[in-house]
Design a protein around this nucleic acid. Sequence first.
RNA 1: GCUGAUGUAGCUCAGUGGUAGAGCACUCCCUUGGUAAGGGAGAGGUCAUGGGUUCAAGCCCCAUCAUCAGCUCCA
Length: 680
Amino acid sequence: MSENIRIQLPDGSVREVAKGSTPLDVANSISPRLAAAVVVARIRPLSEATPGEAAETEAKSAQTEEAMYAGDDPQGERLVDLRAPIQEDVALELLKENDAASLRVVRHSAAHVMATAILELFPETKLGHGPATDNGFFYDVYRETPFTEADLAAIEQRMADVVKRDEPFVRVEEAREEGLAEYAAQGEFMKVHFIERFTKPGDEISLYKNGNFTDFCRGPHVPSTGRVKAFKVMSIAGAYWLGKEDNQQLQRIYGTAFFSQKELEAHFKHLEEIKARDHRVLGKQLDLFSIQEVAGAGLIFWHPKGGLIRKAMEDWMRDECLRRGYSMVFTPHIMKRELWNISGHEAVYAENMYPPMELDDAEYRLKPMNCPGHILIYKSTPKSYRDLPQRYAELGNVYRYERSGTMHGLLRVRGFTQDDAHIFCTRDQINSEIEACLDFAEAVLKTFGFKEYRVELSTHQPGNPDFIGTAEEWAQAEGALKNVLDSRGLSYQTFPGEAAFYGPKIDVKLVDVLGRLWQLSTVQFDFKLPQRFELEYVGEDGERHQPVMVHRALFGSVERFFGVLIEHYAGSFPMWLAPVQVGIVPISNEKHVAYAETVKQRLEAAGLRVELDATNGKMQGKIRDFGLQKVPFILILGDKESQTDSVSVRVRGGGDQGSRTVEEFLSLATTLVNEHAMEL
RNA sequence: GCUGAUGUAGCUCAGUGGUAGAGCACUCCCUUGGUAAGGGAGAGGUCAUGGGUUCAAGCCCCAUCAUCAGCUCCA
């Protein structure tokens, strides 16, 4: 008895096909060319009332194991193989290669192709999991001996063979216990773990086979290995089994795949672009900063040009703090161990701190945070409710021990400068203060040219002793932060267990020009340190009360912010930040240096940062040098200019702009500086 | 901290056991020019550090340090 089901296509048309037909059948019935182009299908059952938009949460968590293996909501839409029989009325989308979901599928299939190749070449290897990632895919494997570069090349070659064989990916269902037994017999301990974790006794588990290779996998996959047309084995790195440091280490082999060689090449070009923006590379090329082996890892030397940029950043920050009612304070770099006992850092933060140093009869420690210092200032005199809020700001140098191997240019260091502030206020003032902090954070992002950002709320993990304080206190603090976010209408994600040990926090992560996310600003609520230090103020009622604290850093770390700025601008800083704003090139040293000197002086008198190249060389070379240094304006000065009190202007990225009088140029340049203009 | 790779001139890199190389940058000389590289000469290296193997080590072995790609952690 043949039963029919209804297939609704994206254009709204409905087809009746025999129950058990596959997406490929449907594609073939439309056109053979479509059937050849389609990669995977997305279906949504029509029978039940289906939620309109359900797919929102998927992207973010796609890399977690749960998301990789847990079944989709059967009511919602899901991706299926082209050969998966359809058993009910569905809305069907046939996804071709241009669909983002297809790319993930082909990458996942590429991971299987790689695993196939690995097992053919190195049969002793045990498989972990092999998901698609944002940029490609990886497969975690376990093997006693490490893979070498040559092994990777061999794997890549063998993958080409597997692709050439064009083996169909076949989905097979089998009893869970059967699968478990087989994998256990083969010593595939990781597969056994995954099956036990992601399926229940009595379940059918799904396996995907291509040729002789079988993998426990949820799918879907492209129809056959031949569809994995452009791929590359990229690199190898260690990864802990299940992400836990005390577990054994696996070898994670990274690769990437695309539908065409052209896209693969474009991807490598994109990687080149990212590399060209790398702040470590630009920091060297533009002579902004260095890290010196002889001084120690993770410690930054700011060179003169980086120093000028830092000064511009800090000047803006200090002015803005004063304008917003902060006081500037300064606290010592080392303080007695006793202080860190009181603050609780000794108890929960010691492993991130430099070891104590003995001085006279006391032990001192380098500060990893500025809060205790600011607290001591607060405590130094009695406070009345009339004094609150007290907002203490400091560009404080802190030192934290970071494990070797974690450092990364300016972005992850051992010594850095926090634009740190602590606000001591009454409970009534919490909302307005946190709100003001968020407003300040937005001003920072806007001023420095970032248009997009994300807000994250980090809360504690109940029962975890690393978080000091009672459940009530945490509930109150987390409630306060949520209130502010909600009342400001900000959308945010919540991360349980990510709070600082003394209180919950709001993090603002910015999105740079390449769409990358950076953790910078943080606003943290703290009820605990005021208790530990027994802070008080005298209220209107004449009684003693305890203030609460807000910790806030907006650059986060001046070093990290600088690193992000370098990459965001690719070293082409806007006028107000550029270390050299104007480069002057005399056409002939003999004839034009004198005039060039006078122009330089006039520009400098107006506060501009000017460099005159009077070295022996041709003007073309000097223009090139300033160009490579990404100087915003280059002025060419020759006979014509000296006779008319003018300058010939070249603008970064725009070439020759013709002549202006010195006055005209001066007013243009100073306006760009004063307005913090992003464009030249 | 862990896995893998790397460390040679200021920078980018070549150099597979037998007297350390290139380009750029630098110094000097010639050249004095019209919008992204004129020409010539010179100087510059404890081959990351410390051990070891060898008649002989930049090269092979061990350890340490640093860097890179990740894991873990984080501002």
